[in-house]
Amino acid sequence: MQLRELRAFCEVVAEMSFTRAARNLHYAQSSVTAQIRSLEDDLGAPLFDRGGRQIVLTKAGLSLLPYARQMLRVADAAYAEVAATAPHRPVRRTAA
């Protein structure tokens, strides 16, 4: 489980669209799809029901969502804390 996969997952949930999530993250749609598949493989469960034009979170996806959001918040806070001590402060996205 990687932070970029969790960020992609949260963005897909926020948009309920792989296409819009990819656009927001500045990734190719195939990259977002691959990140979600990798996350699903790691967890051993599908996170979305992909039926037709609509996607719906599965029970596993609903279970993961609050943890994914919390992990991203903690990672962003850690990044900001460390960056505040660095001479060059890069710009960082906020958690999903």
Score class of each variant (00 low, 15 high):
Glu40Phe: 07
Ala83Phe: 02
Val82Asp: 03
Gln29Arg: 15
Ser30Lys: 08
Ser31Asp: 01
Phe48Ser: 04
Ile36His: 03
Phe18Gln: 14
Arg20Gly: 00
Gln35Trp: 15
Met16Ile: 01
Arg89Ser: 06
Ala14Arg: 15
Arg37Asp: 07
Glu11Gln: 15
Tyr67Arg: 11
Ala22Gln: 09
Ala21Tyr: 07
Ala68Leu: 06
Leu39Tyr: 12
Asp41Met: 02
Leu25Ile: 05
Asp76Phe: 00
Thr33Val: 15
Ala34Phe: 11
Val32Lys: 06
Asp49Ser: 07
Glu11Tyr: 04
Asp41Lys: 14
Arg37Ile: 07
Arg93His: 04
Tyr67Ile: 05
Glu81Asn: 06
Ala34Lys: 15
Glu40Pro: 06
Ala60Leu: 03
Leu62Trp: 04
Val56Met: 06
His26Tyr: 09
Met71Trp: 07
Leu57Met: 15
Ala21Thr: 12
Thr19Met: 07
Lys59Val: 09
Val91Ser: 05
Leu25Glu: 01
Ala80Leu: 09
Thr19Asn: 10
Ile55Gly: 02
Pro46Cys: 10
Val32Cys: 04
Gly52Pro: 01
Phe9Arg: 09
Ser38Asp: 11
Ser30Trp: 01
Pro90Met: 10
Phe48Arg: 08
Gln35Ile: 01
Arg93Ser: 12
Ala84Tyr: 03
Arg4Cys: 06
Arg50Asn: 02
Ala96Tyr: 02
Arg7Met: 13
Ala34His: 13
Gln54Val: 13
Leu25Thr: 12
Pro46His: 12
Leu39Thr: 09
Pro87Trp: 09
Pro87Val: 14
Tyr27Cys: 04
Glu81Gly: 03
Thr19Ile: 14
Phe18Gly: 05
Arg53Leu: 10
Asp49Asn: 12
Leu64Cys: 08
Arg93Asn: 05
Gly51Met: 13
Thr58Ser: 06
Ala84Lys: 14
Ser30Ile: 13
Ala68Trp: 09
Leu25Cys: 03
Met16Val: 03
Leu6Val: 12
Ile36Ala: 02
Leu65Pro: 05
Leu62Ala: 10
Arg37Leu: 13
Arg93Thr: 11
Tyr27Pro: 01
Ala8Gln: 09
Gln54Trp: 03
Ala96Cys: 00
Val91Ala: 10
Pro90Asp: 07
Ala28Asn: 13
Ala14Glu: 15
Glu11Cys: 09
Leu47Asp: 01
Pro46Lys: 14
Arg50Phe: 01
Val82Ser: 03
Gly51Tyr: 13
Ser38Lys: 14
Arg23Trp: 07
Ala95Thr: 02
Asp42Arg: 13
Arg69Ser: 00
Thr19Trp: 09
Leu62Gly: 11
Val12Lys: 12
Gly52Met: 06
Arg7Phe: 09
Val32Gln: 02
Phe18Thr: 11
Gly61Phe: 07
Cys10Asp: 08
Arg92Tyr: 08
Ser38Val: 02
Ala68Pro: 09
Thr94Pro: 00
Val13Asp: 11
Asp76Ser: 09
Leu39His: 10
Asp49Thr: 14
Ala75Trp: 02
Thr85Asn: 05
Glu5Arg: 11
Leu6Thr: 12
Gln29Trp: 05
Arg73Lys: 13
Ala60Lys: 10
Leu64Phe: 11
Glu40Thr: 10
Arg23Glu: 12
Leu3Lys: 04
Ala28Thr: 10
Phe18Tyr: 15
Ser38Cys: 08
Ala96His: 02
Ala75Phe: 03
Ser30Pro: 00
Arg69Ile: 00
Val82Gly: 01
Ala78Phe: 08
Ala75Gly: 02
